[in-house]
Amino acid sequence: MTEQTKDDNKAATKKVIYAAVFANLGIAVAKFIVAAITGSAAMMAEGIHSAVDTGNEVLLLIGEKNAARPPDQAHPFGYGKVVYFWALIVALSVFSLGGGLSIYRGVHGLIDPEPIENALWSYVVLAVAAAFEGYSWNLSRLGLNKYRKDGDNLWQAVRASKDAAVFTVFIEDTAALAGVLVAAAGIGLGQLFDNDLFDPAASIVIGLLLVCAAFTLARETGALLVGESIGREETGELREIINADPSIDKVTRVLTMQMGPDEVLLTASVQFRRGMRIDEVEQAIERLENAVRKHNPAVRTLYFESAALRSSWT
């Protein structure tokens, strides 16, 4: 992967995050104002949701900035996984602050329901929120497309994506759009049936949506943080490329680890042909490195191990 391509990917990721920050900040303020005017528990839950999302995107920007630091003696493989750490923190905040507070607010509303006043303002703000969230959602969807293969749906693209910042915004925005619909339904049903319990019930549903989103984020980012591979299919293709080189008798094992959104570590245990000279082995390794990087430019660090050569030279 060229430095230009890597910079373009980072710029696209930051665009997604900045769009989400500004959208959620404005929406959060509007939702809190309307919640105070109308007394709607669902609107309060939506305000909490948008406020938490705003803070989360700031955390992702911190992660992106720290991940850009060059390798040093303490972190010889770089800081790419910092993004995954902050994305995991985001998942925890979505669960505790977003989901927990929304559910608490809903339960409180069920115990002591309050009538909704001036509901029209709620609908106006929810409509505006849906427009802004939809714009941010579409940007994150486009960011996922670079990991999306022909025939894959968006969920498969999320599972395949290694850019935690992009898929975090996508999952958050998906939950936000669903929350807008739930809030509107809760307020509307409350007016239709003249029942004040629909609104706090909607707040609880919004909280449960956020809890589900948080678990999804935690699972995806946690797997990347502890050392997820680039995938069985891609690893198999790299194994075939290595095995196809004329200097290789046998490929014993190929291991990969995602070190960041655009960085992969590869180790391969191979058996070179017996009788090869040192210079021939060096040429073969250089040839293999070029072939691997041509197939997958994200492979930035490669290690080859040959037990057969060790035994023949000792």
Rank of each mutant, 00 (worst) to 15 (best):
T301L: 02
K162Y: 02
E64N: 13
R277D: 12
M43L: 15
A68N: 14
G275M: 12
A176D: 07
S306I: 08
Q283G: 03
I17E: 00
V166E: 05
L60P: 02
F132H: 02
S122R: 01
V124M: 08
T54A: 15
L255A: 10
R273N: 09
L25N: 10
G109R: 04
A160V: 02
P115H: 08
E305T: 13
L59W: 00
Y79C: 03
I204F: 10
A41R: 15
G207V: 03
V205D: 00
I37P: 01
D152Y: 09
P200T: 08
V166T: 11
S247W: 12
L217I: 07
S161K: 02
V90F: 02
E114V: 11
S247R: 12
H75P: 11
H108G: 02
W313F: 13
R300K: 15
R219G: 00
I27D: 02
Y135F: 15
D150C: 01
G63R: 04
A214P: 11
C212S: 15
K65I: 04
R310T: 09
N118V: 00
P70Q: 14
K149R: 14
Q156P: 07
K65P: 00
K162S: 15
G236S: 08
V264K: 04
A42T: 05
R219A: 06
F193D: 06
L265H: 04
L61E: 04
A45E: 09
I241V: 09
T216E: 01
A218T: 09
L189A: 14
E237Y: 05
L142T: 10
S140A: 15
A19W: 07
I33L: 15
G222E: 08
F95Q: 01
G143T: 06
P297F: 04
L120D: 13
A308C: 06
F215Y: 05
N9Q: 14
K65V: 14
F85Q: 05
G231S: 04
G260Q: 03
